[in-house]
Amino acid sequence: EETVVIALYDYQTNDPQELALRRNEEYCLLDSSEIHWWRVQDRNGHEGYVPSSYLVEKS
């Protein structure tokens, strides 16, 4: 079962390993094994790492 997370803030990045976030957008959580950086996928299928503190699990 996939976990959906919501971005609390915008996040901009130039790092190809990371993914930009848009506030209030939903993302699919792929990997939360790292404490500070979670791997997520956006609705267009793009994947990357984002700061975990910018996300909240959708209830």
Rank of each mutant, 00 (worst) to 15 (best):
Y9N: 12
H36I: 15
I35N: 14
L29A: 03
N24Q: 11
P16R: 07
G45N: 05
W38H: 08
L8E: 05
S33F: 04
Y9L: 11
V5C: 11
T13Y: 02
I6N: 03
V50P: 02
E26H: 06
N14C: 13
N44T: 14
N24P: 01
P51N: 03
Y27R: 01
E34H: 13
D31G: 04
W37R: 15
D10G: 03
A20C: 13
Q17I: 05
A7S: 07
I6S: 04
W38P: 03
I6H: 05
I35E: 14
T13V: 11
V50C: 12
E25I: 03
E25R: 07
L21H: 03
L21D: 00
R39G: 03
R23T: 11
R23K: 15
S52G: 07
Y9E: 13
T3H: 07
A20P: 15
D10C: 03
G48N: 00
L30N: 05
S59N: 04
A7W: 00
V50M: 01
S32A: 11
Q12V: 10
R43A: 15
V5K: 02
K58Q: 09
G45Y: 04
N44Y: 10
R22H: 06
H36S: 08
D31I: 01
H36P: 05
S33V: 05
L8H: 06
Q12A: 14
N14H: 15
S32W: 08
E34W: 07
N24E: 08
S33R: 10
L21S: 01
C28G: 11
Q41A: 13
E57P: 06
W37P: 01
Y49Q: 14
I6K: 11
E57Y: 09
Q12Y: 12
A7I: 00
Q12I: 11
T3I: 12
R23S: 09
K58L: 07
H36N: 10
D15V: 13
E25V: 06
I6W: 04
R23P: 05
S52W: 03
E57V: 09
N44F: 08
G48H: 02
P51H: 04
L21I: 10
A7T: 00
A7G: 04
D31V: 03
I6D: 01
W37I: 11
E1A: 07
Y11D: 01
